[in-house]
């Protein structure tokens, strides 16, 4: 079996009121892994533990056999890039914003960008299709364009691991698909390892090879979407009645939600 690339062992981390409870898991190099789970299940806490925003109380997080807490902030930024659900709506041009991804490569008091910085930036702006509006300001972009710029910025960090925190939650379906198709392409073509928090179970099922279902600070279930997303598990964790079926094209599980009204009607039918 292939060895784990991102390895999390006995992780305890969090706040007074809530913490992750001795988490253990690993994902392999080149995986497209998704973290799912209800609100308050610990997804974001786990995320912050990986990025270093939250101090770890116990356990280790290692990437490619390097313990993350032993890396400097700058080394970490060259290893892991983060895209959040809100890419900043600031009055900075797209190009300048994407260029910021080169910051971890600059020496302390380097004042100007190097030629290489510009080359790398241009390459990833083209790859993510933001090059055509590179002179626009970030606060003039649509939500979808801004997320693409966020991904371009993350790529210019040339990371080994791309962390995405609900990158599509603010977008309509066409932009959701556009963003996730891009991430999928980066994953398959560049071999970039991706770990993504995502609320939408259908998108999680469709795009991720591997899912980690969190609940109450614990890892509830892990595996391929078909193993994790059965209706029983979802009902247990989300306390919601759902139906699942196989997507005829992708053969991955698709989840259907049912309103209370319909549910009570169908119960009556069942009784009579």
């Amino acid at each position: 079996m292939e060895k784990n690339y991102l390895k999390i062992e006995n992780l305890i981390c969090g706040y007074n009121s809530f913490h992750l409870d001795s988490l253990n898991f690993g994902i392999r190099k080149g995986d497209f892994a998704g973290i799912i789970g209800p609100n308050g299940s610990g997804k974001t806490t786990l995320f912050k533990a990986i990025t270093g925003e939250l101090k770890i109380k116990n356990g280790t997080i290692a990437l490619d056999d390097k313990i993350l807490t032993q890396l400097s902030i700058r080394e970490k930024a060259r290893t892991i890039a983060v895209v959040t659900q809100h890419t900043e709506s600031v009055a900075i041009s797209v190009e300048e914003y994407v260029l910021m991804g080169r910051m971890p490569y600059r020496s302390d008091f380097q004042f100007f960008e190097t030629k290489e910085d510009y080359e790398v930036t241009e390459k990833y702006m083209k790859l993510t299709d933001v090059y055509r509006f590179k002179d626009k300001l970030m606060n003039q972009l649509s939500g979808g364009e801004r997320q693409l710029a966020g991904i371009a910025r993350a790529l210019t960090q040339e990371p080994q691991l791309l962390l995405l925190d609900e990158p599509t939650s603010q977008l309509d379906i066409s932009h959701q698909i556009q963003v996730l198709n891009l991430v999928q392409e980066l994953n398959t073509k560049m071999g970039l390892t991706v770990l993504m928090i995502i609320h939408d179970l259908n998108l999680a099922s469709e795009y991720c090879d591997y899912l980690l279902l969190m609940n109450e600070g614990k890892l509830w279930k892990k595996g391929a979407p078909a193993d994790v997303l059965d209706y029983k598990t979802i009902e247990d964790v989300y306390k919601t009645v759902v139906f699942t079926q196989e997507n005829p094209l992708s053969k991955k599980p698709a989840i259907f939600l049912v309103s209370n009204k319909i549910l009570s009607q169908s119960k009556k039918h069942g009784e009579s």
Partner: peptide, 10 residues
């Protein structure tokens, strides 16, 4: 970009 984002940039 904010403290958290700046940290992500090293």
């Amino acid at each position: 970009l904010g403290e958290a984002k700046a940290t992500h940039l090293g």
